[in-house]
Nucleic acid binder design. Structure first.
Ligand code: MN
Ligand code: MN
Ligand code: ZN
Ligand code: ZN
Lengths: 137, 137
DNA sequence: TCCTACAATGGACTAAGTCTAAGTCAAGAA
DNA sequence: TTCTTGACTTAGACTTAGTCCATTGTAGGA
């Protein structure tokens, strides 16, 4: 994640304490936090960070391709730092747990030309839904 | 769609003018309206229908499996009466147009057991994204 | 050290949806 | 047909998630 800070600096990002803590909160595997969760965790380290700043920073990270924005349900968007390894998501319908998964093959390939209606298709978002082991009871 | 009204009556639904117009608005192919769009169209026929009634009715139709709820972006959910023919969606990133599409094969089959982490996977939502012909310019 | 353009702040505002208390009415009973 | 009653509808307050803006602060170059 510190290489992230390097990359951002190289792109002319002004490095502020707020941006640093937001980037640090978004570290690790299977991290899919909402903006408010990012804000809460950032505020543990930098108490007066504003919600608007978190939204701004997340938006910038998304534009720069360093973070992926997800909306797996109709609720708050989630922010995923695992942006450099393309993957899909497996979501528990009970508890909302999210796992990164990699389906076999290219998910785009299964859409025949006859089903593309002249669109230039560039991206596929796949959400697998089911019960996780601890909710299966 | 009148067979929908039959099915609902058979399930003990009390038939009101509000429920009837909501069901009528949700007729046809490639219909993916937001709750507010449904409300606006319903209000053309029944001016004093309340927004809450539209939300209630849509929620009931979803519970009964007669309508599918979609959240392809982080915006308003969309309601899809094409609930009896399983399909996926192709969305234009520019104008938001939505098409029903049928990928070849079972989208669930491409997720290997090793990528299921003990989940009981029951459903897949696939959103193909790209530019539609009129936005391709 | 100073300057200033870029960034952060707090609070008002919007969009989408939920909840509630009071009033209405569909449909079965008599 | 009229009566009855619980299911349904209504308006508006409330919540959640996110955006916008005017003001204040500061990173980093000169
Ligand atoms: Mn992920
Ligand atoms: Mn559809
Ligand atoms: Zn679970
Ligand atoms: Zn388009």
């Amino acid at each position: 994640m510190s290489d992230l800070l390097e990359r951002l600096r190289a792109r002319g990002w002004r490095m502020t304490s707020q941006r640093r803590v937001v980037a640090e909160v978004l570290a690790g595997e299977h991290v899919h936090l909402t903006a408010d969760e990012v804000h809460a965790r950032a505020a543990e380290r930098l108490p007066e960070i504003a919600r608007a700043t978190v939204y701004n920073t997340l938006g910038e990270l998304v534009s720069l391709g360093e973070v992926v924005e997800l909306s797996t349900d109709g609720r708050a968007k989630r922010y995923d730092p695992n942006a450099h390894r393309p993957h899909q998501h497996l979501v528990c319908t009970e508890c909302g747990t999210i796992r990164d998964v990699r389906p076999s093959g290219d998910p785009l390939a299964v859409l025949p030309d006859s089903e593309r209606y002249g669109f230039t298709v560039s991206k596929v978002d796949v959400t697998y839904r089911g019960r996780c082991p601890s909710c299966a009871g």
